[in-house]
Design a protein around this nucleic acid. Structure first.
Length: 186
DNA sequence: TAGGCCATCTGGTCCT
DNA sequence: AGGACCAGATGGCCTA
């Protein structure tokens, strides 16, 4: 049983507590950061080059960064507040993502161990599980279809799409019930 | 101790 | 314009 994750990393300095040596009116990116491979010191650690990251994305978005800051034209404090709000939203987003992973873990059968499935294991198992279920359903239904009827794979897809339209969320159980009925009827 | 996994921060881009 | 999404970076925890 893992018991990890601290609520806040103590070694990381939040934006609400800016470096004291930072010039309040200096636009980040308007001086040496803009023109060179600038490393950024955050908390106790040095971060890699901003320029190299930007360059990987859009062939040099350093100017975009400056543009963004000019557009906002806000003070250091206002930017800090926005950063903190953004961080909070990102945390919430990741928590929702992790909840979805947990739900997926509980939905797929796997050899019970004390060890929690990792994310990559969860995705891989889920994919395999879906494939296996699909194979089973098609095998069970294929032999019983009337000649000239809708191919079983297409029917499966139809059924799934109908389910999505009708049910929205929380319909997996009903979908599975449908599938069972479908395979029994065939 | 190295490597895997993860949470968090961050800035750029996309979307509404 | 602002929020969502994405991916890189970083550092902590855990296990082999």
């Amino acid at each position: 049983m893992k018991c990890k994750r601290k609520a806040v990393k103590p070694s990381r300095r939040p934006w609400s507590d800016p470096e004291p040596e930072l010039e309040p009116d200096t636009e980040p990116g308007s001086s040496e950061q803009e023109g060179s491979e600038a490393s950024v010191r955050i908390g106790d650690s040095w971060r890699g080059s901003l320029r190299s990251r930007a360059g990987r994305r859009q062939g040099g978005a350093g100017g975009g960064r400056r543009r963004r800051q000019q557009q906002h034209g806000s003070s250091t404090k206002e930017r800090s507040v926005r950063r903190l709000e953004s961080n909070e939203r990102e945390r919430q987003r990741m928590h929702k993502l992790n909840n979805a992973f947990q739900a997926l873990r509980e939905a797929i059968p796997h050899v019970k161990t004390d060890k929690k499935l990792s994310k990559i294991e969860t995705l891989t198992l889920a994919k395999n599980y879906i494939k296996a279920l699909t194979t089973i359903v098609l095998d069970m239904s294929g032999a019983c279809l009337p000649a000239g009827g809708v191919p079983s794979e297409a029917r499966l897809l139809q059924c799934y799409q109908q389910h999505l339209e009708d049910e929205g969320e929380d319909g997996l159980a009903r979908y599975l019930t449908q599938m069972r009925r479908f395979s029994q009827d065939e």
